[in-house]
Simulated scan of single mutants.
Amino acid sequence: MLDRITASLPSLAPAEQRVARLVLTDPHAFARQPIRELAERAQVSKPTVVRFCRSMGYGGLADFKLKLAGSVSEGVPFVHRSVDADDKTGDVLVKVVDNAVAALLHYRNAASTAAVERAVEAIAATWKTGKRIEFYGVGNSGIVAQDAQHKFFRLGITSIASSDGHIQVMSATLLGPGDCAVIISNSGRTRDLMDAAEIARKNGATTIVITASGSPLASSCQIHLAADHPEAYDRYSPMVSRLLHLLIIDVLATCVALRIGSSLPPILQRMKENLRAKRYT
């Protein structure tokens, strides 16, 4: 959560930056103090404190404090433990698992429930109106987009995944009001994805992005689901970022499935029965 605030600092208004620096200086105290004291310490108004919390994607000060308290008191430290050339197999196993666990716990504490709720509402509305949802990603994120398409088409939502820049532009051109475009990017700086997101937004589609805070993509889409982690963008084999993106997709799919309600289980059951012939007994 603190990494996310640091990354977002340049994009905040000057008054909100003072609140952000107060959080970064002493997060424990910020989580405990009333809004009056926080406003005085940051030399801003009380509405500015609340506005900062909402700018970071939270429902208000109470929601922000709850997530902040969990983030700074978590038992597993969010420290990136890089694998060294002389590590033994057991060392590699522990480091890779610890990195993944720490990243997931970090996301649990820092995730904006308000942003997730907005994304779920948009996707559920797409399902209700019979519109379609498209997932865009390139490279490693393209594989996550394919996984997302697999999850959502099982829910009865018309969904498409594309990892080719030209196809993304053509597909986004055909989107319109009621449709959703979900853009997945580790760095949030891929030009092809920026182009597709802009086209989809101009056509009236809802744009949802899963990417790092403070990136160009994060600010260009209507709904930002922050995926912040310590993994460098130039890693030869992204691990934590991929798991984090897949986790966010799982959260969205589960929430949307709950919105669909009682009509979904019979469909999934029939699908399961029809697949039995594909398996050896």
Rank of each mutant, 00 (worst) to 15 (best):
residue 126 T to Y: 03
residue 237 S to F: 12
residue 220 S to D: 10
residue 50 V to L: 14
residue 224 H to F: 03
residue 236 Y to M: 14
residue 134 E to V: 06
residue 132 R to S: 07
residue 269 Q to W: 11
residue 3 D to M: 06
residue 181 A to K: 05
residue 55 S to K: 07
residue 130 G to R: 04
residue 281 T to W: 14
residue 170 M to Q: 14
residue 235 R to A: 10
residue 74 E to L: 08
residue 139 G to A: 06
residue 69 A to W: 04
residue 235 R to I: 07
residue 257 A to G: 14
residue 52 F to H: 07
residue 19 V to K: 01
residue 91 D to V: 04
residue 201 R to E: 13
residue 81 R to G: 08
residue 273 E to K: 12
residue 154 R to F: 11
residue 155 L to I: 10
residue 240 V to Y: 00
residue 105 L to W: 07
residue 79 V to D: 15
residue 150 H to W: 13
residue 173 T to D: 12
residue 160 I to P: 01
residue 44 V to H: 02
residue 262 S to H: 12
residue 206 T to E: 06
residue 234 D to T: 14
residue 205 A to K: 01
residue 25 T to K: 10
residue 25 T to M: 10
residue 173 T to F: 09
residue 71 S to F: 09
residue 57 G to Q: 01
residue 2 L to H: 05
residue 157 I to W: 02
residue 76 V to W: 07
residue 270 R to F: 07
residue 183 I to N: 00
residue 41 R to T: 11
residue 163 S to K: 11
residue 234 D to R: 14
residue 237 S to Y: 13
residue 54 R to G: 04
residue 187 S to W: 08
residue 87 D to A: 10
residue 20 A to Y: 02
residue 82 S to W: 13
residue 185 S to A: 07
residue 15 A to G: 10
residue 244 L to H: 01
residue 191 R to F: 09
residue 231 E to I: 06
residue 154 R to V: 08
residue 272 K to R: 15
residue 116 V to T: 13
residue 13 A to Q: 14
residue 32 R to H: 13
residue 25 T to I: 09
residue 70 G to L: 03
residue 6 T to A: 15
residue 138 V to F: 01
residue 256 V to M: 08
residue 252 L to D: 00
residue 13 A to H: 13
residue 50 V to I: 12
residue 245 H to R: 02
residue 55 S to D: 08
residue 58 Y to V: 00
residue 17 Q to C: 08
residue 105 L to E: 11
residue 26 D to E: 06
residue 232 A to K: 15
residue 174 L to T: 11
residue 18 R to S: 05
residue 33 Q to S: 14
residue 140 N to P: 13
residue 81 R to W: 12
residue 32 R to K: 15
residue 99 N to W: 05
residue 77 P to C: 04
residue 200 A to H: 07
residue 202 K to T: 15
residue 166 H to S: 13
residue 108 R to P: 02
residue 106 H to E: 11
residue 10 P to N: 05
residue 83 V to D: 11
residue 251 V to G: 00
residue 58 Y to H: 03
residue 97 V to P: 05
residue 57 G to N: 00
residue 94 V to H: 15
residue 166 H to I: 15
residue 263 S to C: 10
residue 68 L to E: 02
residue 153 F to A: 11
residue 249 I to T: 00
residue 110 A to C: 08
residue 196 A to H: 00
residue 185 S to C: 06
residue 116 V to H: 09
residue 149 Q to I: 05
residue 159 S to P: 04
residue 250 D to H: 15
residue 254 T to I: 12
residue 45 S to G: 12
residue 267 I to S: 15
residue 13 A to E: 15
residue 209 V to C: 12
residue 224 H to Q: 08
